[in-house]
Amino acid sequence: MTPLAAIHVGNKQLGLDEDTARDLYERVTGKRSLREMNDRELRLIITEHRQRGFKPAEKGLQGPFAKKLQALWIAAWNLGIVRDRRDAAMLSFIKRQTGIQHTRFLLDADDAAKAIDALKAWMTREAGVDWSQSVATAEWLRPSGAKIALAQWHVLSVLKAVDPKGFRQFVWDNAKPLDQMTERDWPAVMNALGDMVRKAKA
Results as ranks from 00 to 15, higher is better:
residue 1 M to K: 13
residue 7 I to T: 04
residue 8 H to I: 12
residue 14 L to W: 02
residue 16 L to A: 00
residue 17 D to A: 15
residue 21 A to R: 08
residue 21 A to E: 05
residue 22 R to E: 13
residue 24 L to H: 04
residue 24 L to C: 08
residue 25 Y to C: 03
residue 25 Y to V: 08
residue 25 Y to E: 03
residue 26 E to Q: 14
residue 28 V to Q: 01
residue 29 T to K: 00
residue 31 K to W: 02
residue 31 K to P: 01
residue 43 R to H: 07
residue 44 L to E: 09
residue 44 L to T: 01
residue 45 I to A: 01
residue 48 E to H: 09
residue 49 H to C: 02
residue 55 K to D: 10
residue 57 A to R: 11
residue 58 E to W: 06
residue 60 G to A: 04
residue 61 L to W: 03
residue 66 A to P: 00
residue 68 K to G: 06
residue 69 L to T: 01
residue 70 Q to C: 04
residue 71 A to N: 11
residue 71 A to I: 05
residue 73 W to T: 00
residue 75 A to Q: 12
residue 76 A to H: 04
residue 78 N to D: 02
residue 80 G to H: 02
residue 83 R to K: 15
residue 85 R to E: 11
residue 88 A to H: 08
residue 90 M to P: 00
residue 91 L to V: 06
residue 93 F to S: 08
residue 94 I to G: 06
residue 94 I to R: 06
residue 95 K to Q: 14
residue 97 Q to I: 09
residue 98 T to Q: 07
residue 101 Q to C: 10
residue 101 Q to A: 15
residue 102 H to D: 10
residue 104 R to H: 11
residue 109 A to M: 09
residue 109 A to K: 07
residue 115 A to N: 05
residue 117 D to T: 05
residue 118 A to V: 03
residue 119 L to H: 02
residue 122 W to H: 14
residue 125 R to M: 07
residue 126 E to C: 03
residue 127 A to R: 05
residue 129 V to H: 00
residue 131 W to E: 01
residue 132 S to Q: 11
residue 135 V to H: 07
residue 136 A to Q: 11
residue 137 T to N: 10
residue 142 R to I: 14
residue 144 S to N: 12
residue 145 G to W: 02
residue 154 H to G: 08
residue 157 S to K: 04
residue 159 L to N: 09
residue 165 K to M: 13
residue 166 G to K: 11
residue 166 G to I: 11
residue 169 Q to W: 14
residue 169 Q to C: 05
residue 173 D to R: 15
residue 175 A to Y: 03
residue 180 Q to R: 15
residue 185 D to S: 12
residue 195 D to K: 13
residue 202 A to Q: 10
residue 202 A to V: 10
